[in-house]
Amino acid sequence: MYLQGFFWIAVYLTLVLTPLFALFVGPTPAGEGFLWDFSLALGFASLTMMAVMFLLTARFRSATAPFGIDIIYYFHRQSSVVALLFVIAHPVLLFTAAPDMLLMLWPPYTPWHLAAGIGSFLAMIALMVTSLRRKQLGIEYDNWRLGHVLLAVIAVVLGAAHIVGVGHYVDVGWKGVLWGLIGASCIAAFAYVRLYSPARQLRHPYRVKELIEERGDAWTVVLSPEGHDGFKFEAGQFAWLTLWSSPYALKEHPFSFSSSAERKDLSFTIKTLGDFTNRIPEVRPGELAYLDAPYGAFSIDRHPKAKGYFFVAGGIGIAPVMSMLRTLADRGDTRPLHLIFGYSSWDRFTFREELEELTQKLNLVFVPVLGEPHEGWKGETGMLTPELLERYLPEERTERVCFICGPVPMIESVERSLSAAGVSLSHIHSELFDLV
């Protein structure tokens, strides 16, 4: 898995750097000064980075498997900030090198290729602002997704038009082919994720079998495959779920499976937290659902030889952990397990009855941790501190594989605590929710 990871990182670096190296090779126009050429190189680099984003987010399983797709999206977000800095630097350097060119910003004198470049620049700024500040701007997730895709296409298409219009370094045959290939791979990635994948989902629909109300404003949606055998997933993975619309409508939402990987029916346990999830209680048995799945590297099945597992969950982060515990129970697993699960109160403690039952079926130590304990509560309370984790980490902690799922600050804090307590970083795995 590590080798595969390094291979895909090398592929990524090659993809983003190749067009830059192509600037060096073959017939090139005469140098027009350091700032001018620096600006030009950053312009090419930023457009290439934007184009590669289409490949990054196309959910190719072989490329995302070594990392987990959650981290790919996180990387996409970080790389986009870098690309935006280059996009901003491109005109700043250019106008510094040739201030006369500022006149071309006056509309009567603006050539079409400069207008395309300005359009691409503005689309990129809008992409970043709406992505980094979606919640503060009050943009609904579905509207953001649709706008994000449209703005990304506009940014790249106008950016490519700008390059073709300016005509530097693309008018030589093989360089034109290189840029053509980059453009074609963007279109192919877009077609794969927006046309091929929805078509496959339409051919393999699911039907809602049951809706179960859980403790803590959570609901479990149980789905059965309709006219097909479903698919196998690894316990702890997740799916993009579409309800109440076509898979072409870009109204899919990522949720972890909470069901056992050994059973045919699939379930998702969803907390009512936002526009889409607040509608989950309206789901009715018999309704159609579509799945793009399975994805994710957060799974016991990636570490089958572990001598035991140590799970830490916060809030609805229990969903993928339930999938792993239910799977281990179905398999009759006897390895030692720990679950440290933090939630607000015992009354709202999602899955508490089933977790207590699982301690009978599995070699499981279940440690509920309450943020708002009721009077008389004798268990653990407060945050998942290093001291609390230390109390339950077994002596043979180096042989345990740890899984953490919950809010990002909790994940980061628990990762630090486990690492400081002697657990190898290669044995600590986490799953991010709620990236945008």
Binding site: L13, L20, G31, A41, L42, I71, L425
Partner: peptide, 30 residues
């Protein structure tokens, strides 16, 4: 940890691109 690695990789890639761009501008105008 994965977050830190992903962040480092994204910014490392950016630095590589920046270095390659500076190198191009210097060589092309030498």
């Amino acid at each position: 940890m994965r977050l830190k690695i992903a962040t480092l990789l994204a910014w490392f890639t950016g630095l590589l691109i920046l270095a390659a761009s500076v190198f191009f501008a210097v060589v092309h105008n030498a």
